[in-house]
């Protein structure tokens, strides 16, 4: 959960860069791999699976062909396993912020400074990049990054702080438990007495509350008090709590939301925030750039994972031409082809 601090990275050179590690991006690793196209996958989340991992890890999906029932988490796991023989380079916690066309390749740069050079770009960014939800508390922006944080990068930064954690999910619980030993004080504020987070975390949190190490208050934040970005307290609405909780730091955990993000600036003629593609190869209007999964649009488009898988297969054949312009594809089946079986490491 804790991301690294400032890092420097060597530039990566690869055949294809896949923007987004959701189910469709992960399956593209497999399809491109069968055609000897090496992949690097970049995702803003800290784990593979995209929406499956972030929005519904424990919810069963019933419309994956051949899988009568599978959870989002398990589907992501299986797809990672399926692509593993092709040894993709996975970069998590990075958002591709810049895309530049070079003579015969593309240069992509992430928000944390990683440079990737690739012959083709596959945008599998779903609904965009996940970003923390910013609750519409009046004046919140004045406190952001000074007293209010949406993520914990380094636990040590929170030493001796008087922290108000808001929310009832796993992030709120995990950080209440993890920060408790270093913080001066932790108050956990949630709108109701029930917590939907992992039962084990709820138990741990309650034990810390009983031991007097965490203050638990049922209520909702209505305003922030302080000046020059320095928080002195949060006004709350509560049936039996105080009208204000004194704190110098607030961590609101209201989950993540999807924002289209930098894709909007890459020169595509977007339709309803989707990238138009042709449905033979899922090529965009930019030669060498493909878009698959929820991020694209074409006549008859259905936003289903299974459609994204189909798109990944056809895209790979379109992308092959850019990576190996001198070669033609020999169409093969994984059941019979010795060549494919060797690539998959099964013989």
């Amino acid at each position: 959960m804790v991301a690294e601090g400032v890092e420097t990275f060597d530039p990566i050179v690869t055949d294809a860069v896949i923007v987004g590690a959701g189910p469709v991006g992960l399956f593209a690793v497999f399809e491109l791999g069968l055609l000897d196209i090496k992949c690097c996958v970049v995702d803003i989340l800290d784990k593979p699976g995209g929406q499956c991992a972030e929005l519904y890890p424990e919810k069963p999906i019933y419309d994956i062909p051949g899988m009568p029932e599978i959870t989002g988490h398990d589907l992501a796991d299986q797809l990672v396993k399926q692509g593993a023989p092709f040894e993709p380079l996975m970069i998590f916690g990075h958002m591709v912020s810049n895309l530049e066309r070079l003579e015969n390749s593309f240069k992509l740069t992430t928000d944390r400074g990683q440079v990737i050079n690739a012959k083709v770009v596959v945008i599998a960014a779903g609904g965009g990049s996940f970003q923390p939800k910013r609750p519409p508390i009046p004046g919140l922006e004045d406190y952001e990054d000074i007293s209010v944080f949406f993520a914990v990068r380094r636990i040590e930064d929170f030493r001796d702080r008087n922290i108000l954690i808001v929310g009832g999910g796993d992030s709120a619980l995990d950080w209440s438990i993890a920060l408790q030993p270093v913080a001066k004080k932790i108050t956990l504020l949630h709108r109701r007495p029930d917590f939907r987070g992992a039962p084990d975390s709820v138990k741990k949190m309650r034990a810390l509350v009983d031991a007097g190490k965490i203050d638990l208050v049922v209520g909702q934040v209505t305003g922030l008090n302080g000046e020059d970005g320095r928080l002195s307290g949060a006004s709350i609405r509560s049936d039996d709590g105080p009208p204000e909780i004194l704190c110098d730091t607030m961590l609101p955990f209201f989950g993540l939301t999807m924002k289209l993000g930098p894709v909007a600036d890459w020169g595509f003629d977007l339709e309803n925030n989707r990238i138009p593609v042709n449905n033979e190869t899922f090529a965009t209007s930019e030669p060498g750039i493909f878009a698959i999964g929820d991020i694209n649009t074409y006549p008859g488009k259905l936003k289903l994972i299974l459609c994204g898988f189909h798109e990944a297969a056809l895209m790979s054949h379109g992308a092959h031409h850019y990576v190996y312009p001198e070669r033609t594809i020999k169409f093969q089946y994984s059941t019979t082809s010795k060549d494919l079986k060797t690539k998959l490491g099964v013989i």
């Binding site: 939800k133 519409p136 999910g169 029930d194």
Partner: peptide
Amino acid sequence: EEDMLDFAYDI
């Protein structure tokens, strides 16, 4: 749904 409402603000 009640669980998911935890992710919304001003319930």
